[in-house]
Amino acid sequence: MGLLNYLRSTILSKVVMAITGAILVIYVIVHTAGNLLIYLGQDTLNSYSQFLHSLGPILWIIRIILIVSAILHIVTSIKLKFENWGAKPTKYAVKNYLKAKFSSRTMIWTGIMVLAFVVYHLLHFTIRVTNPQHYYPEFYQPHNAVSYVLLERFDVYKMVVLGFKNPLISIIYIIGVVIVGFHLDHAIQSMFQTLGYNQKHYFPIIQKSSTALAIIIVICLVSIPISVLLGLVGGKI
């Protein structure tokens, strides 16, 4: 298999993990920023969603890049993990970790849980099959409209608010996002190391920023279901 030849090289496999991971991390950052628009109200969030859907083929190109990245990321990680288990057949009776953090040692498990969460998340908000009762159209007035004709678009705001008003759904999202956070804590700095960017003076800063960025992303995303549960967002709906 020509495309998957890189799997034979340990370093190239790691490079593929880093590059596909970087694409997914950039996506998560942009997605988080987009989700925060919920705090600017129904019209803003729905217009943003409408804009995304209006991208048409561009949206599909982005989706395909993301799907291919996710598949390569997963396939490569599984191959690496099986080889690593094979390379250390006997474990120590006593093992004291000196530097490896909890988040670094659990990448494969947090990864599998993130996948489960993303699948649920796509079924819930993108393919929209898990809660069909939450999906409504919104009638809105275009901003620079000359006439008073109301147009119809999908009400993402209402869908998110109704979804998160269910504590069970909110808890799934909160747990899912925290797991994403653990994954990112190790992942972001790891990318730099793998791609060969580790300089004496800057790498400690990169490592701290990796954790900080993961925490910021978690706080931003977790705040949404919490705000809905507390009635701070979408109280009217």
Binding site: T10, S13, K14, L80, E83, N84, G86, A87, K88, Y97, L98, K99, A100, S104, R105, M107, H186, Q189, S190, Q193, T194
Partner: peptide, 12 residues
């Protein structure tokens, strides 16, 4: 037959 690096930094 050595394993792959996971950047755990235990070696260092």
């Amino acid at each position: 037959g050595f394993g792959n690096c996971s950047n755990l930094y235990e070696c260092e």
